[in-house]
Amino acid sequence: MTVRVLVVGIGSGDPAHLTGEAVAALNAVDVFLVADKREATRDLVTLRAELCAAVVTHDRYRFVEVPDPERGPDAQRGSAGYAAAVRDWHAERARRHADAIRAEVGDDGTVGFLVWGDPSLYDSTLRVVETITEQLAASGVEVEVTVVPGISSVTLLAARHRTALNRVGQPVHLTTGRRLVEEYDPALGDVVVMLDGDLACAGLVEAHPDLQIFWGAQLGLPDEALVAGRLADVLPAIRDRRAAVRAARGWVMDTYLLRPG
């Protein structure tokens, strides 16, 4: 038995942000597997369905929701505990998706994973698919994997603020909110921060009062929110905008660029 797996970067979920390669890939899929993360993110599933309805030219595809395992209290874990918890989470997610592929996809079928932004940047899908491939191979299922890039939130952030990610001849550093405060140094150059649910940048205000921030949430969606300015001045506005988006949607996806003043 052979199954094709397409991992497709879908940007913000706006059909206008899909590449031609992504549109062709979506039209080749028989079964889209999506993680069911319960009611808090129900409209993320709806957005994926609406995207496919807008660009897929046939009605032979279907969506299968796979219950996502509980992640646990990451904020309460140290680095070693966090890494172990993520490994366990990925392994369980892979097991559930492998079971779904066995149950829902026939020989020579094509499975699609829709990835927000780009699959290469702070997204677990490729690691999970690698484990899925290993698990299916152990049961005699051959898997062919193709990855299609997408427009990342980082690219959209720079475009919306009409700025480059780096200054002339200077580096760009990409990190997460979890790591930001302990590793920040102006010598890093411009710093892009992702996966920051607590606005860790607030911890830099006292030591680096002239930092500039370019922040964006729900980039590419109708409720997109943008704030830019001196971090010490605009942090309250960012918190307010972030809270408003979460209250309206039940979830928020944001990222930001920090630039030494």
Score class of each variant (00 low, 15 high):
His161Leu: 02
Ile101Phe: 00
Thr133Ile: 11
Arg102Thr: 13
Ile10His: 01
Gly112Arg: 00
Val227His: 02
Thr131Glu: 02
Ala138Phe: 10
Thr163Arg: 01
His173Met: 10
Thr176Phe: 10
Ala49Leu: 04
Ala247Asp: 08
Pro236Val: 15
Arg93Ile: 09
Asp223Val: 15
Thr131Asn: 07
Leu33Ser: 11
Asp88Gln: 09
Val154Ser: 00
Leu221Lys: 15
Pro15Ala: 05
Leu165Pro: 10
Asp198Phe: 04
Asn27Pro: 11
Arg77His: 01
Phe32Gln: 03
Thr110Ala: 01
Asp107Leu: 10
Ser120Asn: 05
Thr163Tyr: 02
Asp185Ile: 09
Ala84Ile: 09
Arg127Ile: 15
Ile151Gly: 02
Ser12Trp: 07
Thr146Ala: 15
Val23Leu: 08
Ser120Ile: 03
Thr46Ile: 15
Gly216Lys: 11
Gly109Thr: 03
His17Cys: 14
Glu21Val: 14
Asn27Met: 03
Gly250Pro: 00
Val64Lys: 05
Leu157Thr: 06
Pro119Cys: 09
Ala232Ser: 12
Arg93Lys: 08
Glu144Met: 11
Val55Thr: 12
His173Phe: 14
Arg62Ala: 09
Pro260Arg: 14
Val86Ala: 13
Val5Ala: 15
Thr2Glu: 14
Glu21Tyr: 00
Cys52Ser: 12
Leu126Gln: 14
Tyr184Val: 09
Met253Ala: 15
Ala40Pro: 08
Pro222Gln: 15
Val205His: 00
Leu157Trp: 03
Ile213Cys: 10
Phe214Ser: 03
Met194Leu: 12
Leu257Ile: 12
Gly109Ile: 04
Glu206Gln: 07
Arg160Leu: 14
Ala84Asp: 08
Val252Phe: 05
Ala16Ser: 12
Leu188Asp: 09
Leu126Met: 14
Val192Lys: 07
Arg95Trp: 10
Val105His: 02
Val227Cys: 04
Ala100Asp: 06
Leu204Gly: 05
Ala217Phe: 11
Thr133Glu: 04
Val129Cys: 03
Val147Phe: 10
Leu136Gln: 04
Val8Phe: 07
Ala40Met: 13
Asp36Val: 01
Ala54Glu: 12
Asp88Pro: 15
Arg87Glu: 12
Val205Lys: 01
Arg249Gly: 05
Val143Phe: 00
Phe63Met: 13
Ala85Ser: 11
Thr125Ala: 01
Leu26Ala: 12
Pro119Val: 11
Ala91Phe: 07
Arg249Leu: 07
Ala25Asp: 05
Leu136Lys: 00
Gly140Val: 03
Gly78Glu: 11
Leu231Ser: 06
Leu114Trp: 04
Asp99Trp: 08
Lys37Gln: 12
Val193Pro: 01
Arg42Asn: 00
Val141Tyr: 01
His58Thr: 15
Ala232Arg: 06
Val147Pro: 06
Ala164Asp: 08
Arg38Gly: 11
Ala159Arg: 10
Arg87Tyr: 09
Ala16Lys: 13
Ile101Gln: 04
Gly203His: 04
